[in-house]
Design a binder for these strands. Structure first.
Lengths: 203, 203
DNA sequence: GTCTATAGGCAGATAGAC
DNA sequence: GTCTATCTGCCTATAGAC
């Protein structure tokens, strides 16, 4: 049968590249405008193809969104793994983590999951579940950094590490959210500096 | 001429009440679903009137949104004035401020301006300007509380009060944003507790 | 003030040719 | 894989009767 597994490797690569291009454009649109504020027509016009063509790669908007989120979560996990690879002290890992957000903001984008969290009440269930999973992953990673930092004395905070992890995620997402209307990254940076400083051990 | 000033006071009141009801429903929809995810049809169905009737009170969605924001900002300012009226110590004022957010969250809503900040790139200019003005107002109020607290020794923080004010706004907005997918207000409360504790003078 | 009726556009989606 | 053509439905908005 003429399934995808039987088509040539070259074509398969082309198909994947098209799909990736679609996700690239969709990602930019969702992160800057929101899931409910972009259409297949937007992507089609940007790429110079028709809407029908997009439906070949992603049957519907829900599937596109889910694929988008899966890729985003994978990349984010890779970025965290890359930070870990450096074997940096805990405070430096936190700074590197915050820098991931700053980079997104400099591209005038909101965190994908922060945007989707705002639209949560209107999204398909699979997308919602992936959003929660994303935050859970972030929380776990931060918890381990925080606990390590507290153990070796490079970080200082009270209560469960999970609470502080949640506070960090919330603060970074919120700083992004409020900063974007001002278009001023400095606004974000001062908040991050204050946040990281509050976790430093008292002299 | 048959302007609004010439109609009876009774009718004028009825008109205002209808307009208020429309704003009530719109507010609920925007805060839970977003400006781009509700329609005149949603409001009309909820109130049991037709879409055309809504257009009598608010010519278009942009005007409705602007009126909504104006009312919200006015009420928020009133709430802040009410907090000031109590002449509480600075830390208590901050707690009361955070409680405004908590109340919104308990009603399963996002801060109106936090939601609109997410959708910023897609909104009419007048709405965007009102969103920025709202955050500016909040920042000013927090600044004065923070400075007063630092002066009388009830609060402790480093750097300009404006930076800490921005951090507080961002943290509260972000905590709301991330908490909503979990539907667990406790998540929000732990962040707020940590935030307020970090501003307490060191023992 | 609220209604019916309707315009005009864009959304997401599908069928079928190439 | 991408196209043209088309469907259906919902959107914002308006005209005009009551």
């Amino acid at each position: 049968m003429a399934t995808r597994t039987s088509i040539g490797a070259k074509r398969e690569r082309a198909r994947r590249n098209t799909a990736e291009s679609i996700l690239d454009v969709a990602e930019q649109l969702v992160q800057s405008r929101g899931f409910n504020a972009f259409s297949y027509a937007d992507i089609a016009n940007t790429l110079g193809v028709t809407k029908a063509s997009l439906h070949y790669h992603f049957p519907g908007k829900a599937e596109l969104g889910h694929a988008l989120l899966a890729r985003y979560a994978r990349r984010f996990a890779d970025a965290l793994a890359e930070i870990d690879r450096g074997r940096l002290p805990a405070p430096d890992r936190l700074a590197a983590y915050a820098e991931l957000y700053a980079t997104t903001l400099r591209r005038r984008r909101m965190c994908l999951c922060g945007m989707l969290a705002a639209e949560f009440a209107t999204l398909p269930k699979p997308i919602n579940e992936a959003v929660v999973a994303f935050f859970d992953d972030n929380e776990r990673w931060l918890m381990s950094v925080l606990e390590q930092g507290r153990a070796d004395g490079t970080l200082e905070f009270e209560g469960p590490a999970g609470d502080t992890a949640r506070m960090i995620i919330g603060s970074l997402e919120g700083a992004m959210l409020v900063t974007r209307p001002y278009g001023d990254v400095g606004r974000f940076n001062t908040t991050v500096a204050a946040l990281l400083a509050s976790l430093e051990p008292q002299a």
